[in-house]
Design a protein around this nucleic acid. Sequence first.
DNA 1: TCCGCGAGTCTCTATTTGAGACCAGCACTC
DNA 2: GAGTGCTGGTCTCAAATAGAGACTCGCGGA
Lengths: 135, 135
Amino acid sequence: MADESLSERYRAWQAEGLDPGGCPVRDVLDQLGDKWSTLIVIILAGGAHRFSALRRAIPDISQRMLTQSLRDLERDGLVLRTVFPTKPPSVEYRLSELGRSLLEPLAPLVGWAEANHGAIRAARARYDREQQAAE
Amino acid sequence: MADESLSERYRAWQAEGLDPGGCPVRDVLDQLGDKWSTLIVIILAGGAHRFSALRRAIPDISQRMLTQSLRDLERDGLVLRTVFPTKPPSVEYRLSELGRSLLEPLAPLVGWAEANHGAIRAARARYDREQQAAE
DNA sequence: TCCGCGAGTCTCTATTTGAGACCAGCACTC
DNA sequence: GAGTGCTGGTCTCAAATAGAGACTCGCGGA
């Protein structure tokens, strides 16, 4: 089973003394898991977007967080930023080669999320009902 | 290319008026992306663990966050919690069927993280160097 | 009688996030 | 020529969230 190799790999990393920036899983997934990054990558999968286009695509992100998430993604080399010196300057963001390679493992996860969203919502409702009852 | 279908699906959801709990991608991935959840799932992939065993496995998680992450995972039906009424009571956590099904799409992502960790670290170093130079 | 264990909870502080005002340069309008 | 708007940000301040560490409860052992 490949399942167990997952925890196996984590354990292996842990065994050889946890170096600071260390564990790839944690370093990389923490970044992707910061609420906006993954979503931005998914949107950019559909093609390059300008700053304001991204803001429209994600109505409930604050400008501050959009800027910061894009910076982080750029820093990690997943996203490329190009400034066009037009009259009001415009900035275009698009996925790099590395960013595009992330889509491959990301797609199944999104598929899983869609397929199991119903089950998760049901589980939540059940849990909440039981908590209510127990109180 | 399947790549674009990712953003396509997000756009489709967005088009039909964004209902609150709405978008499966956001609802589910926000949960998984909260810094500890994914890691806990990965560790539980290797078998059931007790609360204190999890704490040892993730030395830098606070007790508070471990409790909360486990509750969330339990609420979403990914993790099962069993209390054994032993002398000092012990509690065992393990993946549910649903939780185990998540491992399948998760494994490629972890693989990607390991494979590209080096590239990301290199990109970061380059970015930081350029920032330094520009300042 | 006092100590410690397991699995939490509670409190207090530090860090992150979000809302929203403000900025610069230029084009267009009045 | 003053006023307005667009772009892609930055700054400040308040609210939410995470982390550290003390405290709890019942019981078994020294």
